[in-house]
Simulated assay, not measured.
Amino acid sequence: MTDIGVVLLVQAAVSVPWVLPRDPRLEPATLSAYLLTTLTVLPLLWRRRAPVRVLLAVMAAQSLYGLATDGPGQTLPYTGLVALYSVAAYAPAPARRLCGALTLAIVFPSVATAKEREFPAGTRQHYVNINSTVAGLLIEKVTGHSYEGEVSRRILAPLGLRDTSFPGSDPRIHGPHNHGYQRMKQADGTTALRDVSVWSATDGWAAGDIISTTADLERFLTALFRGRVVRGPLLEEMFTLPDPSVRDFVTGRAPAFSAGLSTWTLGGRQVWGKTGGRWGYNSGIGATRDLSRTLVYSINSTDAKAEGENALVMGVVSTVFGAPSAD
């Protein structure tokens, strides 16, 4: 493909935010912002001759865009990455490596720090999936191996969790399983249930890209609480909450998250565990610290990502452990 053809394709991608209907919460798109966005694409015309200079030009153009106060309210990570890929695709190997290094050193940190911190470290708690993603990246950086490989070698194999696996790009659940149904809005404005059993989980990665069974989850829960996964101070940290002065960022309540677990007071008992939801499914594990009572569940949830507690789940949980405390 010619350089001009690539420029036209990238320009088409850049134009999407100004062609498709916009989210009403975003600022209106304006001509000046569009022109600044276009400036990001123009250096691609010289990508074969000087790929590193082109990369720097793309970064400079994106910086100018970031200074525009009438843009769509965000930098251009997706168009910027398209541009970077286009530069690297035709660059010789040394320049490709330099492009990658510059991207890691400049582009990714600028995107990650585009917004101010929600709060100073150690003063609040805020559970978000990106934390698990960062943990997965740290595992790969420290070990030099894939996140999936390390979890399989260190946890799945030693505990005999033979029915637990990472699907990767495979969207299907293999073996016996219940179908998940999600309530979705149709084109005519009505809602209907859709079978979402075939659904790629790659967007979750370390925050949820894993398939298991209730039997394996029960085995994992028991092994974790008995110190077969982590031991000593590491295990105790999983059952230790921050100081009560550290409040939840969203609810303002007392801290409920430790290092990897959540805690609830149910029926006068302190219960530790973890819950999760994907489209059509809702699952969780929980137990008292002494394992005198345990619970593992997996249910259909037609609105798995909705705010608030799932009534069916709360019914099951209350039956096993008792009703939640008033707080």
Results as ranks from 00 to 15, higher is better:
residue 171 P to N: 01
residue 242 P to A: 03
residue 101 A to W: 14
residue 306 A to I: 03
residue 216 D to K: 11
residue 158 P to L: 03
residue 224 L to Y: 14
residue 87 V to C: 11
residue 236 E to F: 00
residue 101 A to G: 06
residue 65 Y to K: 00
residue 177 H to Q: 12
residue 224 L to E: 08
residue 52 V to A: 02
residue 131 N to H: 14
residue 163 D to V: 08
residue 155 I to D: 11
residue 246 V to L: 11
residue 51 P to G: 05
residue 53 R to M: 11
residue 191 T to N: 04
residue 164 T to F: 04
residue 105 A to K: 09
residue 40 T to Y: 00
residue 18 W to I: 00
residue 7 V to N: 13
residue 100 G to C: 09
residue 173 I to M: 03
residue 121 A to P: 10
residue 301 S to A: 14
residue 111 V to E: 03
residue 292 S to D: 08
residue 271 V to G: 05
residue 106 I to C: 07
residue 107 V to P: 03
residue 147 Y to M: 03
residue 161 L to C: 07
residue 174 H to S: 13
residue 300 N to G: 05
residue 284 G to D: 13
residue 209 D to M: 07
residue 100 G to K: 12
residue 183 R to C: 04
residue 214 T to N: 04
residue 304 A to P: 02
residue 186 Q to A: 15
residue 197 S to Y: 00
residue 279 W to F: 15
residue 283 S to N: 09
residue 11 Q to F: 06
residue 239 F to R: 09
residue 17 P to G: 02
residue 304 A to L: 01
residue 8 L to R: 14
residue 33 A to L: 01
residue 236 E to S: 08
residue 68 A to N: 15
residue 85 Y to W: 10
residue 29 A to T: 13
residue 131 N to Q: 14
residue 276 G to T: 10
residue 54 V to E: 06
residue 19 V to S: 05
residue 54 V to C: 15
residue 156 L to W: 07
residue 45 L to R: 07
residue 196 V to E: 02
residue 318 S to A: 13
residue 34 Y to Q: 05
residue 115 K to L: 05
residue 237 E to T: 11
residue 68 A to D: 15
residue 211 I to E: 04
residue 291 L to D: 06
residue 212 S to R: 07
residue 201 A to Q: 10
residue 174 H to T: 04
residue 206 A to Q: 08
residue 102 L to S: 06
residue 180 G to F: 06
residue 61 A to N: 01
residue 151 V to M: 15
residue 137 L to V: 12
residue 320 V to W: 04
residue 105 A to P: 05
residue 326 A to D: 15
residue 278 R to F: 00
residue 116 E to I: 01
residue 82 V to P: 00
residue 117 R to C: 13
residue 235 L to D: 02
residue 13 A to L: 11
residue 26 L to H: 09
residue 205 W to E: 09
residue 135 A to Q: 12
residue 271 V to N: 02
residue 222 T to P: 02
residue 132 S to K: 09
residue 3 D to E: 10
residue 185 K to Q: 15
residue 136 G to S: 14
residue 235 L to P: 03
residue 99 C to M: 08
residue 312 L to C: 06
residue 309 E to H: 11
residue 247 R to M: 04
residue 189 G to D: 05
residue 159 L to Q: 04
residue 79 T to N: 04
residue 294 T to L: 04
residue 38 T to P: 02
residue 190 T to A: 13
residue 190 T to L: 13
residue 133 T to K: 06
residue 247 R to A: 13
residue 308 G to S: 10
residue 134 V to Y: 04
residue 293 R to K: 12
residue 150 E to D: 09
residue 288 T to G: 02
residue 274 K to S: 10
residue 24 P to C: 13
residue 318 S to C: 08
residue 107 V to Y: 12
residue 9 L to E: 13
residue 99 C to N: 05
residue 200 S to D: 09
residue 94 P to G: 09
residue 229 V to F: 11
residue 167 P to F: 00
residue 200 S to G: 14
residue 135 A to H: 10
residue 307 E to M: 15
residue 21 P to I: 01
residue 163 D to N: 10
residue 112 A to I: 12
residue 43 P to M: 01
residue 29 A to V: 05
residue 8 L to S: 05
residue 7 V to R: 06
residue 178 N to R: 14
residue 150 E to S: 04
residue 11 Q to V: 04
residue 242 P to H: 07
